[in-house]
Amino acid sequence: MSDDPLHQEIILDHYRNPRGRGLRAPFEVQVHHVNPTCGDEIDLRVHLTKDADGRVVVSDVSYDGQGCSISQASASVLAEQIVGLSLGDALMVQQGFSELMQSRGTLTPDEDLLGDGIAFAGVSKYPARVKCALLAWMAWRDAVSQAVDSVVEGKTSE
């Protein structure tokens, strides 16, 4: 899963003790994504709010699913990294993680941006596992692009 024992330990920790797991309300959008090659699945909800300055903030990401250690740990890292960020900053994290995963092991990850996401740098050397690592992040990207309209119009499921 990763050649670096320290990174391995970070991934295992998120796998065994997932942060923010479980579907919660309120939320604007729920998506269901699958990895058709291996059958991994995730249900993911996003809750966006507007702060006092009118900025859109990622107030919650909640999820449930089943899959390998990589896909589950990466969902946990996502929730830990981006909840509480402005949507703009969260999208930067998502973009940084995607770039890292597509780097085939050639990028030095930015810990300030990605937090524990840097542990997946080694995974990017295994093309068969990259989709596992990106499953939750693609689901989040999809959910957010649907949710932005809802939050602007003030539609939230309680």
Binding site: M1, C38, C68, S69
Partner: peptide, 25 residues
């Protein structure tokens, strides 16, 4: 232990197997 993870450890030992739903979901 998820089958993908089993397959990954086997792969690291040179053992090639298939993991997933095997086109029989």
């Amino acid at each position: 232990v998820h089958p993908h993870d089993v397959g990954h450890i086997l792969d690291s030992r040179g053992v090639a197997v298939r993991v997933g739903h095997h086109c029989a979901w």
